[in-house]
């Protein structure tokens, strides 16, 4: 059983501070973490390996410092880690990103099961997984909260708003993983030390046979950002300060009945 997990390094949302004067987020000092949903995907992969044997490979595409994310995955128990990094990959929309990942996966090996996070918490598109599945021509299942092997198929528990679907998916398959009932395991200290010593080969665009550079990064993106702007402010209304709770509540109830809201 060969499992590939694709992870992305993202800024830590807890580290992102809000500046209420400029109403903007202070990102400068934000530390980077492994995208939380990708960690759930890795946890599932490691559990499957423990039960059925095989090998877990982790792939990321990103800047050179994304190697830290890979080392964390190694310390959690991944057997192999692979970094694809090239300025040509930068700034892609999901179409270009999925093309680069597809080429990198082809170069990395053959897999029965490919796990993705449901979405990356920086962009939140939840599109890269299905688009890689499309390029690979494999079956997909999204938003999984559990996976079990059944011969040449996997059984996937898929969350819907009001129910859980259990679906049978033919392998090879690509499954995107949502929040699990268990938290991802902690990195193992010995593996952490070992991870620090790993010399990582870096895959660049030139290493990927037959790759079409015109389909990568910003150039290869179908979606172009036209403008960025501050969100429209919704004017503040009444603010009750330095009042007893009793008076504040009375004022609120009056306000709501005047507004005919209740």
């Amino acid at each position: 059983m060969n499992i590939l997990v694709c992870v992305k390094q993202v800024p830590d949302p807890v580290e992102i501070k809000f500046n209420s004067e400029t109403a903007s987020l202070i990102r400068a000092c934000a530390a980077n973490i492994v995208n939380p949903f990708d960690k759930y995907a890795l946890e599932l992969a490691l559990q499957l390996k423990e039960k059925h044997g095989g090998e877990v490979t982790v792939l990321t595409m990103g800047p050179p410092q994304a190697v830290d994310a890979l080392k964390e995955c190694y310390a959690m128990g991944a057997d192999k880690i692979v970094l694809a990094s090239d300025s040509l990959f930068e700034g892609g929309d999901t179409l270009a990103t999925s093309y680069a990942l597809f080429c990198a996966i082809k170069k990395t090996g053959e897999f029965d099961l490919i796990l993705y996070g449901k979405q990356a918490i920086d962009g939140n598109t939840a599109q890269v997984g299905p688009q890689v599945a499309e390029r690979l021509g494999v079956a997909q299942a999204t938003c999984a909260t559990g996976i079990e092997l059944a011969d040449d198929k996997v059984l996937v528990a898929r969350e819907q708003d009001d129910c859980q679907e259990i679906i049978e998916v033919k392998m090879p398959a690509l499954v995107t993983v949502a929040k699990l009932a268990v938290e991802p395991r902690n990195p193992n200290i010995r593996r952490k030390i070992a991870a620090n010593k790993i010399e990582m080969p870096v895959i660049s665009a030139a290493d990927l046979e037959g790759i079409d550079a015109a389909r990568l990064g910003l150039t290869g993106s179908a979606v172009k950002v036209k403008k960025m702007f501050a969100p429209p402010v919704r004017g503040a209304g009444i603010k009750i300060e330095n009042e007893t709770a009793d008076n504040a509540v009375k004022a609120l109830v009056d306000y709501l009945s005047n507004a005919k809201a209740i």
């Binding site: 109403a23 402010v233 503040a236 209304g237 009444i238 603010k239 009750i240 330095n242 009042e243 306000y255």
Partner: peptide, 8 residues
């Protein structure tokens, strides 16, 4: 900043 009615 967005509340129509705020209680501190």
């Amino acid at each position: 900043n967005v509340a129509d009615f705020g209680i501190v």
